[in-house]
Nucleic acid binder design. Sequence first.
DNA 1: AACGAGACCAACCGCTGCGCA
DNA 2: TTGCGCAGCGGTTGGTCTCGT
Length: 268
Amino acid sequence: MGRRPCCAKEGINRGAWTAREDKVLTSYIQTHGEGKWRDLPQKAGLNRCGKSCRLRWLNYLRPDIKRGNISLEEEELIVRLHKLLGNRWSLIAGRLPGRTDNEIKNYWNTNLGKRSSSTKQEKKADEKGSIWTSSVALKPVDSHQVIRTKARICSKVVIPWQLENEMVKKDDQPFITWDSESPTSLSLPEDDFSHLLGDFNVIDLLTSDALDLEFNQENGRDSIIGNGGGEDFGGTAMSSDQEFHVSAIEALLSSLSDGAMPDTAQSK
DNA sequence: AACGAGACCAACCGCTGCGCA
DNA sequence: TTGCGCAGCGGTTGGTCTCGT
């Protein structure tokens, strides 16, 4: 059996793209749109694998690609999101308009990843004004809990209607309010946003509940969140509380992507 | 000027998730 | 429910560039 290969391995161009190939691919996609990558090379007259075309377009030719150095604000966001999501480069890239997963992955591997594993280098980074040892000191990357957002049962942000206008409390300290005009989005206290985002404490609070040990033990599953944990719920439905918490995490991530850069980063 | 080491980054490879029949 | 095909993702590779000797 076996699936048919995405392209004939023989006789196709590999390696660096030429300007002509770029032009052909760009004009084809501008005319016909993205998609159908397997058939695209043949139709466009490119001697390339469909996968290669897709990658070239997404990582390099797309008109909305932002080129140039990663700014300090972007770096900070990458670090925070990586702390939260782990190596989910596409998810992280989704929060950084114009940046590709490949670019962020490369940036992490060549800059941030190294920094996180070396105290010496942290000092260096500090001299450069990096966030790694700033007042918002971050823990080494591998010491945190990573949220696996691919929980199949919760692919969309759905805030239960009965929670409208309710204050979500932890230890009687309100930290999130719901916007009654837009019940599917979170409304964060304006003057507390940066604090809220600091180290994603809010996420930790929310996930600690979502991480209900009893839930995991009863179902004999690894946690959906955490190092090396499983990624799905194995078909076991979450409780409404758990579903809500994970939803809230997703919503908070969405709020980050809506240009809501933490004040701490912008004020630097 | 020549060479080597390390850094950077575009591209490739193989696996997974998801939609559909 | 199952199997197949496609698109997408993340890890890895390898070519090119930069810098130090």
